[in-house]
Write a protein that binds this DNA or RNA. Structure first.
Length: 414
DNA sequence: CCCGACCCTCCCCT
DNA sequence: AAGGGGAGGGTCG
């Protein structure tokens, strides 16, 4: 077990309107974050274990590096420089990493205002889901993660990704007894037994997709993938360059990236858009999944006539509609509405009701009191979503659509 | 453009 | 009390 050299906690000023990790890390754009302690999230990233906490004014972060003496650094996928030795250098490095990963440059509160001004539905739904940022994840990791997402749920996707890391990714260290592995390289997934092994691990038909995609990316080279990224949002250490103004259907670079990704096995339009948005920095990318399709029908008058089902043509029409409505960062706005529709966060929609019902737990979406919420949430590593709070769910759901209320109400009695 | 099949897990319902 | 039916951030042929 490699010993870790942990730096002290550092912090940077970030309001919850600019970033809410409790929402952003759980909304299904990244699949590897784990709760490492009360109110603390951790992830193996770029050769270290990054841990986070957040209060109403600051984001606190700490990096733990493998001790160079006992465990030589095992560089993950791409750009890990050999271990920095001074604590100061570690911290500087980690600060840059955090700023990059959380994509902290855009002014999110300002963007929310802009989207709310343009869209009454956004204005209605966004207030309880502030601080949802699009992460700048590693493109290769995003690619594999979203290949796993097809016809799947967030809980199982997370387990699959953890399994991938456990068996094929470099071990960075432990938090308590829990091992933290970085994401595997493409090459690590090209072995002759990978597909069969993944099949055995419960990946189902995605085992083949992952293996074949790994082989193709290994052949094309990671540079091929990286070169598809938005020059405005380049990898850490590369200078940004302009990528032009938004046009119908998205900018040329985005369309090219999307098209090239479609050549990979298990990558259709939706997965390609997820990679474009969350791995390649194309903010106008709008992944249209079943959730978004339902939102489009419910709130944006889709689902009739020409666009009665989610064909490729409808897919493009929905994405274009959202781009023209929300603008260049349409993918960011889309993610807010997507998150607002996740069952995981449904209790947030009726927080006031719970308080009225003399429930002890008060939920302040933007405040630290969210921890009360967190205590009751599953961690993604747990096997199933259990329900020690059926009663609350029942109360919650009475305010929601009848269909759901009926189902849950019956189950409550069971 | 429309289907069914595809791995697997959990859930509701009978 | 077992088991069908459906859905879960789709993709392929």
């Amino acid at each position: 077990m490699p010993s870790l050299r942990a730096s002290e906690w550092q912090n940077l000023p970030v309001s919850l309107k600019e970033l809410c990790i409790n929402t952003t890390l759980r909304c299904g754009q990244s699949f590897r974050w784990r709760k490492s302690a009360e109110d603390e999230w951790s992830l193996a990233l770029h050769g270290r274990i990054l841990s986070l906490r957040q209060d109403s004014e600051r984001l606190h972060y700490r990096a733990s590096f493998p001790s160079a003496a006992l465990a030589p650094p095992t560089p993950p996928a791409s750009t890990v420089p050999s271990a920095a030795e001074s604590v100061n250098q570690d911290d500087d490095d980690t600060l840059a990493l955090v700023k990059h990963y959380f994509n902290l440059t855009p002014n999110l509160a300002q963007l929310y205002d802009q989207w709310a001004l343009a869209d009454p539905n956004f204005r209605k739904r966004a207030p309880k889901f502030t601080g949802v940022r699009i992460l700048q994840q590693d493109a290769w990791e995003a690619l594999i993660g979203f290949i796993c997402s097809s016809n799947n749920n967030i809980s199982r996707i997370s387990q699959m990704v953890h399994n991938l890391c456990l068996h094929y990714g470099p071990l960075i260290g432990h938090v308590g007894a829990t091992p933290y592995h970085d994401f595997p390289t493409p090459k690590a997934l090209t072995g002759p037994k990978v597909e069969q092994h993944l099949q055995k691990l419960g990946f189902g038909y995605r085992a083949k997709y992952i293996y074949k995609t790994a082989v193709m990316v290994e052949e094309k080279g990671l540079d091929w993938l990286q070169d598809l990224c938005n020059p405005e949002n380049p990898p850490l250490g590369v200078d940004p360059k302009p990528a032009g103004e938004l046009v119908e259907g998205g900018r040329g670079g985005y369309r090219r990236a999307h098209e090239e990704l479609l050549a990979l096995h298990g990558v259709g339009p939706k997965v390609a858009d997820c990679v474009c948005l969350m791995g390649l920095g194309w903010s106008e990318s709008v992944p249209v999944d079943t959730h978004v399709w339902q939102i489009a029908q419910r709130d944006y008058k889709f689902g009739k006539g020409k666009h009665s089902s989610l064909t490729k043509a409808t897919y493009d029409a929905v994405a274009n509609r959202f781009r023209s409505l929300w603008g260049k960062e349409a993918g960011w706005a889309h993610s807010v509405l997507f998150t607002a529709d996740l069952k995981t966060f449904s209790e947030r929609l009726v927080a006031k009701v719970e308080v009225k019902e003399e429930t002890v737990v008060k939920i302040e979406v933007d405040g630290i009191k969210q921890e009360a919420d967190m205590v009751r949430m599953e961690t993604i590593t747990e096997k199933r979503v259990k329900r020690p709070f059926v009663k609350e769910e029942h109360q919650v759901l009475e305010v929601k659509e009848e269909k759901v209320t009926r189902k849950r109400a019956k189950r409550t009695k069971t």
